[in-house]
Each structure stands twice: as structure tokens, then as C-alpha cells.
Amino acid sequence: MIRRLRRVVRRAYRRTVDLSHPARSPLGSAVVNCVMYEDGVRRDGAHTADEALRLVRKSGRGFVWIGLHEPTEAEFAGFAELFDLHPLAVADAVQAHQRPKVQRYDDTGGGRGAGTLFAVFKTCRYVEHEELTAASEVVDTGELMVFTGADFVITVRHGRHGSLGPLREALESAPEQLAKGPAVVLHAIADQVVDDYLAVADAVQDDIDDVETAVFSEQAGRGDAGRIYQLKRELLELRRAVAPLDRPLWALATRPLPPVGPEIQPYFRDIVDHLARINEQITGFDGLLDSILQAHLAQVTVAQNEDMRKITAWAAIVAVPTMVCGVYGMNFEHMPELRWTYGYPLVLGVMATACLVIHRSFRRNGWL
């Protein structure tokens, strides 16, 4: 079976400059990119975050997209102040290890929107491996936080994967779509995250197929149980990323949550459908792994029973000469066979014949 390996090409981050105030510098140590869009078109130039936001709010027809990677509290403080982000959301974005969710915070600053949406996504990546073992890492997870306002998008990424560079380029190639505002970026991010779930689920299915084939092959070994348990653990990691996201996406698709307008909500409903499919896949995978594990344990039990039957059969065969030898080993004085000329070969012949008859009987019944 040919394993479908998902190879993701990640672009290198732009060179960053370590300055004291990331919001007022061209790029801070944690900043991947800071871009201004006007009418869906990227405006070239090394703008600082406050300059870009000022220009956008002055023109009234664009937004700023800032990408961060694992910022510290000090690095993020300038952006939190500039964009008037809620302290609870800021703490979640910096500390990470959050459950997937979508929360809305009222706008108390000078923005032109009705509030800020804070979304948390679990990113997943399939870890390629030559052979699945009981210690193989199959699913690697990270986190992606998105602050979405009427005129800005701030993405905060935690983990070794989940780069948004290719996504940014894809959106920039469709300026008419990007002109609809930050909600389009939020949808594109959610769509990419869910697409990654689909790719991981397909790859995990290949591993499950390989384990299933190995369990029912003639070379099945008792170490297969460790591989099955490992797959179940990694599947649980994927479930923790996928399952909690259903309710937040449904809220984005059905509830009025500015800046996500009615024209964008149908796109989120499409993502909800994809997420439901992944949840069904994961549930099916878990049930299939349970069945494979039960089948493997049944095979181990059958193999043990066969071993016990063979041991019992050989013990029964050996019992015949043992019994005869035990009788003649009692050393009684009056045993007429002891002085008979043909006694010894006759006893050996009787023992050999009895052993052969018992052995043939066991072979006929499948014990040997």
C-alpha cells in the first residue's frame, strides 16, 4: 500500500529587527509581517503598526494584518495598547494552551468597528515516519490565535507549523475578495486549519490501514498492541483539536458577530460541514481501532490456546513412557517381567506404539 505523505512547503519568515516597541517599529522580534491593505490591494512600504493603522483609519477603506510568532508579554503589550485589545484575550494569546473558541469583546477604543473577535484554533500537522512504532509521534499540534476588528487582523502563532505565508499570498491574488475586509482573512484561516485537519485525518487513515493489514497478516506480532494504543493516543490529540471547534464555527456561521457580516457567514457554514465530516471520520477511526485491538487480543488468546494445546498433547504423549518406567522402577522382588528374555524390547515397543497412536490422534484433532 502506498502511503499518502503530505509534504508542506513552508516559506521562510521575513527578516526581523529586535526593537524595544514592536508596535512602533517596522518589525519586532516576534513579528512575522505587518501589511496594510486598501480596497483589497497590498500597499507596499515598511509601515510601522501605528502608522499603518493611522493611514487605514484615515482612508476608511482598508485594514492592517499583523502576524506574530510566539510573542512574549512585553512584545505584545504595544499591540494590545494600540489596538485596544481586551486583557483576558491578550493573556490567552501570550500564554497559549487554550481550548478552541470564539469570543467577542466590545470596542472601547477609537476603532470604527463594533468590537473585536478573538478566535483560537488548534493547528495540526501529520508527522511523517518510516514505520509506525509504539512511540511514534503521528499528530503534532500548535495554536493559532486571531484578533479580528473592523480595520485590523492580528494573528498569533504558537508551534513549529501553521505558517500563514502561502495563505496570505493566495488572498492577495484575489483582491476583490480581500476587499470585503478582515472577516475574509478570518474565514480563510479557519478554512486552512480545517483543511489541515482533513489532510491529517487522511494520513492517519493510512496508518490505520497499515496496522489493520499487519494484525491480520501471518507475520502479526504481539507488539501490534502498542502501535494500536499509540494510534489511539494520537487520534485523541486530533480529537481535542477538532471537536471543540464545532460550536465556535457554528456561532460564526449563524450568529451576528461583527465584523463577520451576513455576506461572509455562508462561507463559515461550508467550513462547519467539513468539520462535521472530520468529526465523523475520527469517531469512525476510534471505533475501527477498538475493533482492531479486540481482534488482535482475540488472536493473541487463540495463539496462547494453541500453545497450551500443544503443550498438553506432548505432556500426554510423554506420560505413557513415564508411567511404564515408573511401574518398572518400583523394584519389587517378585516381578516376572524382570527376568523375561523379551521383556525389555517388548516394553519399549509398547511404549513406542502407544506414543505413536496418541500422537496420531492429536494430529487428527488439530492439537499438533
Rank of each mutant, 00 (worst) to 15 (best):
V302S: 04
A276T: 08
D273E: 08
P256C: 03
R239P: 05
R247I: 15
I228F: 01
T254V: 10
L275M: 07
A220C: 00
Q299K: 13
D270N: 12
P244N: 11
A243L: 13
P256I: 00
V300W: 13
F216W: 02
I271S: 07
Q299G: 09
G284A: 14
L249K: 10
Y229C: 02
R269T: 08
Q294S: 15
L249V: 09
A303V: 10
P262I: 04
R269A: 07
A241Y: 12
Q265Y: 03
L257N: 12
I271R: 07
G221I: 00
I264F: 06
F285E: 03
P256V: 02
G287C: 07
A251C: 13
A295F: 10
R240G: 01
L231S: 02
R247H: 15
L275R: 06
T301Q: 11
I282M: 09
A241E: 11
T283H: 11
A241P: 07
L238S: 03
L238A: 01
R277Q: 14
Q219E: 13
D246S: 15
V300T: 15
A243W: 13
T254F: 07
D273G: 12
E234F: 01
G226W: 05
Q265R: 14
P248I: 11
E280L: 12
H274S: 03
P256K: 00
R269E: 03
R227P: 06
P244L: 06
Y267I: 00
G261E: 14
L236Y: 01
I264D: 14
A253T: 11
L275H: 09
P256A: 07
P262K: 03
Q230D: 06
D246K: 15
H274R: 07
N279C: 10
V272M: 11
I292K: 03
D246G: 11
V300L: 14
L252P: 06
G223Y: 06
A251Y: 13
L289Y: 00
I264R: 14
G221V: 00
R222W: 07
Y229V: 03
Q281H: 14
A253D: 05
L257G: 08
A220V: 00
H274C: 04
L231M: 09
I271H: 05
A225Q: 14
E237C: 01
A253S: 15
L236K: 01
P266G: 02
S217A: 05
G226A: 11
D273K: 11
I292A: 04
G223L: 03
L289V: 02
A243R: 10
A298C: 04
D224C: 04
E237T: 08
E280P: 06
L257D: 12
G223W: 07
R240H: 13
Q219P: 00
R239C: 02
R247Y: 15
G221R: 09
A251N: 14
L293I: 01
E237W: 08
P259M: 04
K232N: 05
D246N: 13
I278Q: 04
Q299T: 08
R255F: 08
R269I: 02
I228V: 12
I282V: 14
T301Y: 03
W250K: 12
R277Y: 11
Q281E: 13
S217K: 00
L257P: 13
Q265M: 05
I292V: 15
A295S: 12
S217H: 00
A220K: 02
Q265I: 02
V242W: 08
R247L: 15
L257K: 13
H274N: 06
D286C: 00
G284R: 04
A243N: 12
V260A: 05
D286R: 08
A251Q: 15
S217E: 01
E218F: 04
